[in-house]
Design a protein around this nucleic acid. Structure first.
Lengths: 118, 118
DNA sequence: TATATTTGCAAGCAAATGATTGCATATTAT
DNA sequence: ATAATATGCAATCATTTGCTTGCAAATATA
């Protein structure tokens, strides 16, 4: 269990995404997190370790408890990767929409063009 | 190989992200994609299958070639998931920045407060 | 038609993943 | 001091992943 360890890998697991959602607002201790899932505490512990290893969460010890705090800024890498494509496709959609509207509004547009073949 | 098959899982693999980047602008056929990587064509073929299965790419047969076209809109799920947290953390940063600036500008701000303990 | 090209499918494999159970350790409450 | 609580670590295990190689099918070219 010592392989690729990056943010994309980390958020690929639904349990880990749920954990992030659970601690996004405020730090939560390990057991409280574990109780919300129906897998063993150890399994959650491993997920926390993975999240921690790729910087997505900080752990603050407080007495015998450990509070997990989300480091949302570490999602930046993902955000940027997706955002570039998001921009690309929304840009295309906008262009398409504009094109369609323009076609529709042209008073004498030769509709036959729609059927231009091959 | 019949398990979880979602977009998050799909983009977890760096090769698959690279493939998406390669076909984001225009469709590319399978062999051309495969040539860009130093793994076997079969390995790429499997990645394409995975991407296709979760809707991230369409395949259009053209003669004996198959062109892979990116379906960037399918990244929406990821975009939305990340965007909510992006908003959260940038919001916090903005608030923090504002707070700091306000502190600095207050003529008679009691600086001791910085040291408020525990 | 014979041959080359493009691609998929299947079998086999090592490594990674996600989970479990049992035991150890530190801290807090009795 | 003793018991209870919170948590980590290690061993183990079934699946999944990513890859490879070999073979088959469809299409294009000589």
């Amino acid at each position: 269990m010592e392989a690729r360890r990056d943010v994309f890998q980390a958020i690929a697991d639904p349990t880990r995404r749920a954990i992030i959602g659970m601690i996004a607002q405020q730090p939560v201790n390990v057991n409280t997190i574990a109780e919300k899932f129906d897998v063993s505490r150890q399994a959650i512990s491993l997920h926390l370790k993975i999240l921690s290893e790729c910087g997505l969460l900080n752990i603050q010890q407080q007495g015998r408890e450990r509070f997990c705090e989300a480091r949302l800024d570490k999602l930046n890498e993902v955000h940027e990767w997706v955002a570039q494509y998001h921009k690309l496709w929304t840009g295309r959609m906008a262009a398409l929409k504009q094109f369609v509207e323009q076609e529709e509004l042209l008073p004498k547009s030769p509709k036959k063009h729609k059927k231009t073949k091959k």
